[in-house]
């Protein structure tokens, strides 16, 4: 088995079909180890399916997925993967201490000190019942359970969805601090794009079960431009006829103005007439979420 240490999660022609159709189809990506990947996409894009495939809760219908080179669900992969599902399943009748003991007994290589430190930093009494905790405290206990496992790969499915803004920052800060200490790989899904902007350094964007964007966040922003200028009346999209349409993510005309997001492929025709700027990550992700085009690097993607 080839185990590339720089790749944490690799998909090869990965597909998963349910009765209703393909939830994921022909997905190829390689998520880098030691980094924080944002998993972005509209509801139904296949994000949760991907998490369930990565933890071995689901099996692929086609292709394969590998966690540090191992098959998801195998002992080698399971030991290195921690998954925090959207609903943060915890036993409400357990105390916090019992919850941690549960983690200790289920996991051979358990870091009790780290788990307790995370709980204590939130001023949570160890004898409190989990069912009596606030949502922020419950999130902290769930994260303590996940980090106590000493994972190499931490999967977070909408971890902050039901938290108030202060607790969101605290929970995200906790995840970032643990990542800083241990170099854990994190894959995190969220609809709050502005929050991902500062947290993530790699992006995987899924739409309708397919990969639309996969890359280093900063490089993606640097290789795309948002342009504003005078619309060309001779074309439908308002962009100059000479511009390569394969690189156009989105374009819209308002009156005499055209506004577009492009994959930057070189100088623009009539360069000085354009206001050109690099998009923020949020701006870029929104453009790809809105767009139906698939600007793959290969030119056959031209619409």
């Amino acid at each position: 088995m080839t185990d590339d240490p720089t790749t944490a999660l690799r998909a090869t022609r990965l597909g998963r079909r349910f009765r209703g159709g393909w939830a994921l189809r022909d997905c190829d990506f390689a998520l880098p180890a030691g980094r924080i990947t944002a998993l972005v996409g509209p509801n139904g894009a296949g994000k949760s399916t991907l998490f369930h495939l990565a933890t071995g809760l689901l099996r692929p219908t086609a292709g394969e997925l590998r966690v540090f080179g191992a098959e998801p669900g195998s002992p080698a992969a399971r030991d290195r993967t921690a998954f925090l599902a959207q609903d943060k399943p915890l036993y409400p009748r357990f105390t916090v201490e019992e919850t941690l003991r549960f983690g200790r007994e289920l996991n051979g290589d358990w870091d009790q000190a780290a788990a307790e430190r995370i709980v204590r930093a939130g001023d949570i009494p160890l004898d409190a019942r989990v069912g009596a905790l606030s949502q922020g405290q419950a999130t902290r206990v769930a994260l303590a359970l996940a980090f106590g496992k000493r994972p190499g790969l931490l999967l977070l499915d909408e971890p902050l969805a039901d938290l108030d803004p202060l607790v969101r920052i605290e929970a995200m800060g906790l995840v970032m601090a643990e990542v800083a200490d241990r170099g854990i790989t994190v894959v995190m899904s969220s609809h709050v794009l502005s929050e991902l902007e500062n947290a993530c350094d790699h992006v995987l964007l899924l739409k309708q079960g397919a990969v639309r964007l996969d890359g280093d966040a900063q490089q993606l922003c640097e290789t795309h431009v948002r342009i504003t200028g005078l619309a060309d009346p001779s074309t439908d999209d308002g962009l100059p006829p000479a511009l390569d349409r394969a690189g156009v993510v989105e374009a819209s005309v308002t009156g005499r103005q055209v506004h577009a997001l492009l994959r930057h492929t070189g100088p623009l025709p009539g360069d000085d007439r354009w206001v050109v700027e690099n998009p923020s990550l949020e701006d870029l992700l929104l453009a790809y979420l809105r767009s139906d085009s698939t600007p793959a690097p290969a030119p056959e993607a031209a619409a």
């Binding site: 924080i36 920052i169 906790l174 970032m176 601090a177 990542v179 947290a199």
Partner: peptide, 15 residues
């Protein structure tokens, strides 16, 4: 330290 900064402002440690 990187840990102190990211814990306070919740940004990526690489930043």
């Amino acid at each position: 330290t990187a840990r102190e900064v990211v814990e306070a402002i919740a940004v990526n440690p690489n930043t």
